[in-house]
Design a protein around this nucleic acid. Structure first.
Length: 592
RNA sequence: GGCGCUGUAGCUCAGUUGGUUAGAGCGCCGCCCUGUCACGGCGGAGGUCGAGGGUUCGAGCCCCUUCAGCGUCGCCA
């Protein structure tokens, strides 16, 4: 670029360096901050890549214009890159060695005074951020998170492409099936009184793609479930959805683990250690959860044997009913007050505990809420069982086994949180050998723990009629830092076996035909053995970003009650639109 | 649907036992300032204390109801 050239080189606001000195450049962006010295104006212009300082000298015609610039005005500047005078460089800025001397300023658009600062990282109430999401998205945090999300998804697509997977889109308007989460429904105009459902996942469609001979499928798939939202759960979310033919469980796990290892390397530049594997039974016994947080130990200890002959009625009755007594170490917990322990007990009850016994191992002896039932031998036994030392506390829970392990597991997370153990490492793990069925609390009937298309272990087929509840599934979860990233399984690929499972679940032939007839028929035409997995991208990105809320990695998330505060959705619609769909609202209050 | 936390200026927050005219920092507006980078200095505007009701001589503060936001349980094959 020579000095007489009037065309400036388009530059980004983050990339100019000392070696660009002398270049004539054009920068487009937003006014991040203006430092007006009266006789000299410094202006930081911002785009996605960063900030560049523009200097306005009062002798330049654009100086008066620059005096009127305000936060978030959109401008185009042209000028010459120059080194900053010695001693005025800004080491905090990537572009801090240079500045651009103004030659031309064009105000492309003015901005209203923003409702919250765009040029800082300061916390702002989230509902305001959501209402003005376009401004929030300009801020560094979301710019960074969404850029990382892009890199993660890109790495995934590249990985599966190298492994021979095809990305195939599946429809958003599909058939509603009553199982699983609540469906989002879309009324059909052409077929009055009937509805499509939005996919909860492309489960059956990807299985059908295997039947169609595609062999290896993946999709970055949008999924919708009409259930209540949480910090780690949106009603609408994204999965990396994978299915492969002629594969074993090992094959799927290898592919998915390699994918995560590759993503971590390429998108985050972090190495994943070997991912440990636990069976469901182990995970529950040691951590009280099927999605254990392995960033810390504090394993649960089954101390039932220590209390076999106890006179403590609570423990004795739990044990005679076939339950268990579990001990949890609370590092440093001996310094807690009675009031602290009472609060902990309340928390445990909130998680479903019948109660909690605590023992504080002080240097001046053991204090406990059940002192007279904790002999010295028992205390010694408890200490060795959970590795507690003087200065720690031990928390004890007793109940039936189905309840006491999850309760103790939740308290383990609480203790881990309080002791600052839930931070740092990427603690992945696999959980395998899930039970095929679980008992539905309402109906008391067996329902699939995952979904009815998963295959049981081959040797468990003989239990379908005799003892279905002890069947194990060829089903595996991938867990990171206590969050379930996703589930997969080897599927049933024979129609008669699929019918057998439906029958076991209490579905009549007519029900099977109405709900899944299309799918069972597809299985009858040469369905290959197949299996797959889906991982929640929002959660993966959340954890990769170190965020504690999934909304921080989604451009336009919904709030806790499913509202889009920027668009103000959902809203009522004109009667005319409902009439087209043969619908009438029965809602008690109709907004205008 | 249950439980918990939060709601005071545009933003982030403070506000004593219930007591005069509700404050601070940032932002905003005006003036001054030629090497700043969270520029600086001087001045100014800006409040339905989420809403409604109650107790009281008197309520930002106490009570009741309600709305909104967040977290959580239920729910999420």
């Amino acid at each position: 670029m020579n000095l007489t050239d009037t065309r400036a080189a388009r530059a980004s606001c983050g990339n100019l360096r000392a070696q660009d000195t002398g270049a004539f450049v054009e920068l487009n962006g937003w006014v991040n901050r203006r430092r007006d010295h009266g006789g000299l104006i410094f202006l930081d212009i911002r785009d996605r890549d960063g900030l560049t300082q523009i200097v306005f000298d009062p002798s330049h015609p654009s100086f008066a214009q620059a005096e009127r610039l305000r936060h978030e005005d959109v401008i185009r500047v042209r000028g010459r890159v120059r080194r900053r005078p010695a001693g005025t460089e800004n080491p905090k800025l990537a572009t801090g060695e240079i500045e651009v001397g103004i030659e031309a300023l064009e105000v492309l658009n003015r901005s209203e005074v923003p409702p919250f600062p765009v040029n800082t990282q300061d916390d702002v109430e989230e509902s305001l951020r959501l209402q003005y999401r376009y401004l929030d998205l300009r801020r560094p945090r979301l710019q960074r998170n969404l850029a990382l999300r892009h890199r993660i998804v890109k790495s995934m697509r590249d990985f599966f492409d190298r492994r021979g997977f095809l990305e195939i889109e599946t429809p958003m308007l599909i058939k509603s099936t009553p199982e699983g989460a609540r469906d989002y429904l879309v009324p059909s105009r052409l077929h009055p009184g009937t509805f499509y459902a939005l996919p909860q996942s492309p489960q059956l469609l990807k299985q059908i793609l295997m039947i169609s001979g595609f062999g290896r499928y993946m999709q970055i798939a949008r999924c919708m479930r009409d259930e209540d939202l949480r910090a780690d759960r949106q009603t609408e979310f994204t999965q990396v959805d994978v299915e492969m033919s002629f594969c074993s469980q090992e094959d799927v796990m290898e592919v998915m683990e390699s994918c995560m290892r590759d993503v971590w390397k390429r998108a985050l530049d972090r190495e994943l250690p070997i991912v440990p594997r636990l069976t469901y039974a182990e995970a529950l016994a040691r951590y009280g959860s099927d999605k254990p947080d392995l960033r810390f130990g504090l394993e649960l200890a089954d101390v039932s044997a220590l209390f076999m002959n106890t006179e403590f009625v609570v423990f004795a009755s739990a044990l005679t009913a076939g339950g268990a007594v579990l001990a949890l170490r609370y590092p440093g917990g001996a310094s807690l007050s009675r009031r602290d322990f009472d609060a902990l007990t309340e928390l445990a009850k909130m998680h479903g505990a019948k109660g909690m016994v605590w023992a504080a191992l002080g240097s001046d002896g053991t204090k406990s809420s059940a002192t007279k039932f904790l002999s010295e031998e028992v205390v010694a036994g408890l200490r060795s069982a959970c590795g507690a030392q003087v200065g720690d506390a031990i928390l004890l829970f007793a109940d039936e086994r189905a309840s006491v392990f999850p309760v103790a597991g939740k308290m383990r997370l609480e203790v881990g949180q309080r002791c600052g153990l839930r931070s740092g490492d990427d603690a992945f793990c696999w959980v395998t050998d899930f039970p095929y069925l679980e008992l539905d609390e309402e109906s008391g009937r067996p329902v699939p723990a995952h979904h009815p298309f998963s295959a049981p272990h081959e040797s468990d087929w003989e239990l379908v009629e005799s003892d279905p509840l002890s069947m194990k599934a060829q089903h595996y979860d991938l867990v990171l830092n206590g969050f379930e990233l996703g589930s997969g399984s080897i599927r049933i690929h024979q129609a008669e076996r699929q019918r057998k499972i439906f029958a076991m679940l209490g579905m009549s032939d007519e029900q099977v035909e109405a709900r899944f007839g299309f799918f069972v028929r597809a299985l009858e035409y040469g369905a290959p053995p197949h299996g797959g997995m889906a991982l929640g991208i929002d959660r993966i990105v959340m954890l990769a970003c170190g965020e504690e809320n999934i909304r921080e990695v989604i451009a336009f998330p919904k709030n806790q009650v499913g509202r889009d505060l920027m668009m103000d959705a959902p809203t009522a619609v004109p009667e005319r639109l409902l009439a087209d769909l043969f619908l009438r609202s029965t809602a008690p209050i109709t907004e205008e």
